[in-house]
Design a protein around this nucleic acid. Structure first.
Length: 675
DNA sequence: ATTCCGGCTCCAAGG
DNA sequence: GAGCCGGAAT
């Protein structure tokens, strides 16, 4: 994609007279504009690296940006450049000003499942739906910058009032744990800046220029942070595309794009409409689908990359048949076009759709990598280890205490924990502190107390070592001390245990490397001890940078996680009413965002696009008939070729070894004629 | 009575 | 994939 910069790109890079909004269509070279602009600021416009912050939403985007900008920088002036995610920036601010906010520097960062458990305790229920709803409600309040008191005042019905009360208790609990959740990482700094203008001025003096990626995904809180940081100077570049706004569900508001034009009267708007990624047919499809959405800014992508292949839309009998079709088509296409596996991506609306595809890929020995979905850091074995680290860093972190104290089993059971919990809450102290209280100690048996104290004292020795010994040494000793490997092999069959232990090893070596601080840019992780690494770990969801040379593997990804990426050949599966658009979105009248998801999916493809849907799908235990997605009907007829009988083709009988037949199916596939 | 196991069901999206 | 359930095994 190396071309000369086109005029709007050049203009976007050189424009420094005030706030700038770059409306960058899919594949229009947006990352290039941001990285080149950073280089321009530093190499030509006299900015220092330390004065510039580029903000992204994902760690991956931040890493890619850092990697692409580093070679462009000349000399030392680029040193100290901040390329970071919103959450990581929030953490940085929070950590520096922790004392002022009444937090210890090593406060914990809770993940969604920790929050879920806390809410479950507060509400004294296991009703998942209610808990999810409450969690969502609280998160929405936070993203909209609404405090518990304000939530109570605003609550017009009893339900909302109850939720606001839970919100308050939840915040009190987090306080007691010396913990924040993901939403707080943005919200608390904004509050801090609201209340302490001198702190805000300090940060404004530090950061002279902001660049914000994926601006359409900002929520009210994030926008407020940007406004605070840019202040009166108003020197920033926001890059976004209203057609790719797909994070409304976590509080992002496309309106923020329009808001910019009203909040900054001098806002300059530049559109990037030339696409350097896809064929004309793919772009025409994308344009025509998205044309069904109301427009915030008029924009039409065009390409000079030739007409290209027809899009394929295939109706399949079932999920199994769909998976098989995709695998067969992929194999045939790869063979025919002499491509490699990494030229292909299979995209879907929800994570669970990947499972069946994985199964078929495995059966056919096709290598694949999967992104999005349940992440490395969500694995039980990783969370186990992290719970020790969290507890060592912050002994007030009760959720970490409970997990570490009970995993692996070490004689600390429910009764002990309950007594400890009672005492701790009665005396308003942490579980850890309560364990050392005489008042509590004669409440339980001698053996139990002995085991509990052994555990707590061990944590204390780790606290001492964590600040002075190398991270990998401490970690390895920890694993030995708690006999984690034995625990894994006792609990599971050898193969599963082996995988889990492998994950642990990988985690430890990854973390150790971070601790050495040998990263080439000398950024965040330099020379950090184990405690400082712990907070950073909480913000990371994927293990990155393991392989420098990407393996030759098919990419599996959710549509959300695919944003910003491109692939030669894309399979977009499960294009049915109820899947894409998702049922919940149909019910909530949020078709436009689903359409943008479809748009994102289409525009990932460079050369070919395969869309599939199932005529029948197993749902709630039984096979149900499905309708093709309304978005399929929105594709331009002349650019699409249909396969499979979309109406009432004969139901295929699925034999037991359905996924295992190989050549026969390839042949059948190749022979199949378009209807 | 307690634990163990296999099958069944559950799925919106991410930092 | 993981949590949950019912039935089997201890």
């Amino acid at each position: 994609m190396q071309h000369l910069l086109n005029p709007p790109q050049r203009e976007a890079i050189h424009y420094l007279d005030g706030p700038l909004l770059v409306l960058a269509g899919a594949g229009s070279g947006k990352t290039r504009v941001i990285t080149q602009k950073i280089a321009y600021l530093i190499n030509q416009a006299g900015y220092k690296g330390t004065q510039i912050a580029a903000i992204t939403f994902t760690n991956k985007a931040a890493r890619e940006m850092q990697e692409r900008v580093t070679p462009l920088l000349e000399g030392k002036s680029g040193k100290g450049l901040t390329v970071t995610t919103f959450h990581s920036l929030g953490l940085q601010i929070l950590r520096q000003e922790a004392a002022l906010l009444g937090y210890k520097p090593q406060f914990s960062i809770l993940d969604a499942s920790d929050s879920f458990k806390i809410l479950s305790d507060i509400l004294a229920t296991t009703d998942k739906q209610l808990l999810r709803k409450t969690q969502w409600q609280i998160s929405s309040w936070k993203n909209a910058f609404v405090s518990p008191d304000q939530a109570k005042a605003l609550a017009d019905e009893e339900m909302a009032h109850a939720a606001a009360r839970v919100y308050q208790l939840y915040q009190q609990t987090l306080r007691a744990y010396q913990a924040v959740d993901f939403d707080d990482l943005i919200k608390v700094p904004v509050e801090l800046f609201d209340q302490h203008s001198e702190m805000l001025e300090k940060w404004q003096r530090k950061l002279h220029y902001l660049l914000i990626d994926e601006y359409q995904d900002t929520n009210a809180c994030q926008y407020k942070l940007i406004k605070q940081l840019t202040g009166l100077r108003g020197q920033f570049t926001a890059v976004g595309d209203d057609d790719q706004a797909i994070y409304g569900w976590r509080g992002a508001d496309v309106e923020n794009l329009r808001q910019l034009t009203t909040d900054f009267s001098k806002l300059k708007v530049i559109k990037l409409e030339q696409n350097y990624r896809s064929t004309v047919r793919i772009l025409r499809a994308a344009n025509q689908v998205i044309a069904n959405n109301p427009k915030l800014f008029e924009k039409k992508l065009w390409s000079e990359l030739g007409t290209g292949e027809l899009l394929h839309v295939t109706a399949t009998q079932s999920e199994e048949h769909e998976a098989e079709t995709v695998v067969m088509k992929l194999q045939a296409h790869k063979f025919e076009h002499r491509t490699t596996y990494k030229d292909y991506a299979i995209l879907y609306r929800s994570n669970h759709q990947a499972r069946i595809i994985e199964k078929f890929l495995r059966n056919h020995k096709i290598p694949y990598t999967i992104s999005g979905g349940s992440s490395f850091f969500d694995k039980a074995e990783i969370k186990d280890i992290i719970s020790y680290l969290r507890l060592v860093a912050n002994e007030d972190d009760d959720p970490a205490f409970i997990r570490a104290a009970t995993t692996p089993k070490k004689g600390i059971g429910n009764t002990t924990l309950e007594r400890l919990g009672e005492y701790a809450s009665a005396h308003k102290m942490s579980l850890f502190a309560a364990a050392f209280e005489g008042g509590f100690q004669h409440d339980i048996g001698a053996k139990q107390l002995e085991d509990l104290l052994t555990f707590c004292r061990y944590i204390q020795t780790l606290q001492g070592r964590a600040v002075k010994d190398p991270a990998n040494e401490v970690l390895n000793d920890l694993l030995t001390a708690i006999q984690y490997e034995t625990y894994l092999y006792d609990g599971e069959e050898a193969r599963a245990a082996e995988t889990r232990w492998g994950n642990v090893i990988e985690f430890v070596s990854w973390l150790s490397k971070k601790g050495e601080g040998s990263t080439e840019y000398g950024n965040e992780s330099e020379g950090k001890n184990l405690l400082e690494l712990t907070q950073m770990v909480s913000l990371i969801t994927m293990l990155e940078g393991r392989e420098d040379s990407e393996p030759d593997a098919v990419k599996l990804s959710t549509l959300h996680a695919s944003k910003g990426l491109e692939y030669g050949h894309v399979f977009l599966i499960g294009c049915e009413e109820g899947i894409l658009p998702h049922t919940n979105s149909i019910d909530a009248d949020q078709i436009e965002e689903e359409r943008r998801l479809m748009y994102v999916g289409i525009t990932r493809a460079q050369k070919s696009l395969n869309i599939t849907w199932c005529k029948k799908r197993k749902r709630a235990g039984e096979m149900q008939a499905c309708e093709p997605s309304r978005f399929i009907a929105e594709l331009p007829k002349d650019d699409v070729k249909h396969f499979g009988n979309p109406f009432n083709g004969p139901d295929q009988v699925l034999s037991k070894d359905y996924g295992k037949s190989k050549m026969a199916n390839i042949k059948a596939m190749l022979a199949s004629k378009p209807t």
